[in-house]
């Protein structure tokens, strides 16, 4: 019964996550960008834009310019999240890929870093009046949710150990449609339920910043308005009407 519930939950969550993000990306890519609005100084070529975007994605360059504390906590959290996600690949691959084996132990420390980074961000949200002012309940809940995922994960590693072989069998079973029983450990069930919740709210929440960044015209446009006439679809019809 439990296994079925979680299996259904994860199928649903994966569907919502993948479908939701795909829908959003379709929506963003089909919405016209009528005018050139890169924040300058901006690269003058597409290649330069890729480099600019890479610096934003990997280093959080703009955030670094803005505020060193937010950058520090934010970057730690995201880098840690990446490592933790990679570490979790071992539950979905058989045999486990070599490099995934390599990130196992950094991935554990990353779990602590993840929680620490989030705690830093949350502290700022509560303690800095400016950020407290702009925070809605959902902003606090989002932090609470991810911290709870991190803490429950770490708890399973150090306190309430669970049968990870069975967990892996469960997820591989989901992937190959050959369902295996899920251990009924409370912490595991909490951890998984929260992860599923996060997957489901992703496409309807501010977590959209992840795909959104790539569609931000102030960052993804090249500064070449004089060299190349920028024409977005709706304006094309307007221009035709004029002639």
């Amino acid at each position: 019964m439990l296994t079925i519930a979680y299996a259904v939950l994860f199928y649903g969550a994966a569907l919502v996550l993948a479908g939701g993000i795909a829908y959003r990306m379709w929506e963003y890519s089909t919405t016209p960008a009528p005018l050139k609005i890169p924040t300058t100084p901006a690269p003058v070529t597409r290649g330069g834009v890729i480099v600019r975007m890479a610096r934003e994605v990997v280093l959080f360059e703009s955030l670094f310019k803005a505020n060193k504390w937010i950058w520090l906590f934010g970057w730690i959290f995201h880098a840690a999240l990446l490592l933790v996600l990679l570490r979790h690949l071992r539950y979905f691959t058989q045999p486990v890929w070599g490099w995934v084996v390599l990130v196992q132990s950094p991935g554990i420390y990353a779990g602590f870093a993840l929680v620490a980074g989030l705690a830093g961000l949350w502290a700022r949200r509560v303690l800095v009046p400016r950020i407290r002012y702009i925070s809605a309940p959902s902003d606090h809940l989002m932090l609470a949710l991810i911290i709870a995922i991190g803490v429950s994960g770490l708890a399973m590693r150090y306190v309430f150990r669970t049968d990870i072989v069975a967990v892996k069998a469960f997820f591989l079973g989901l992937m190959y449609f050959d369902w295996q029983p899920l251990p009924a450990d409370p912490v595991l069930l909490i951890h998984l339920a929260l992860v599923a919740a996060l997957m489901i709210i992703f496409p309807v929440s501010k977590l959209l910043h992840a795909p959104g960044l790539f569609f931000s015209p102030s960052r993804n446009q090249a500064d070449d308005a004089r060299e190349r006439r920028h024409v977005a679809p709706p304006l094309r019809t307007a221009a035709r009407a004029r002639q």
Binding site: R24, E27, Y28, T31, P32, A33, P34, I37, S62, L63, A66, N67, I70, G74, L121, R124, R125, V128, R130, I131, I134, S135, A136, D139, K206, L208, H209, G212, L213, F215, S216, P217, S218, P234
Partner: peptide, 24 residues
């Protein structure tokens, strides 16, 4: 407007309220 401006739509969706802009 949201339908006709990618910038506006993305800007309205993506803000995470990090606070980086609050003192700018």
């Amino acid at each position: 407007l949201v339908k006709n401006s990618r910038g506006l739509r993305v800007y309205l969706d993506t803000c995470v309220k990090c606070g980086a802009c609050t003192d700018k």
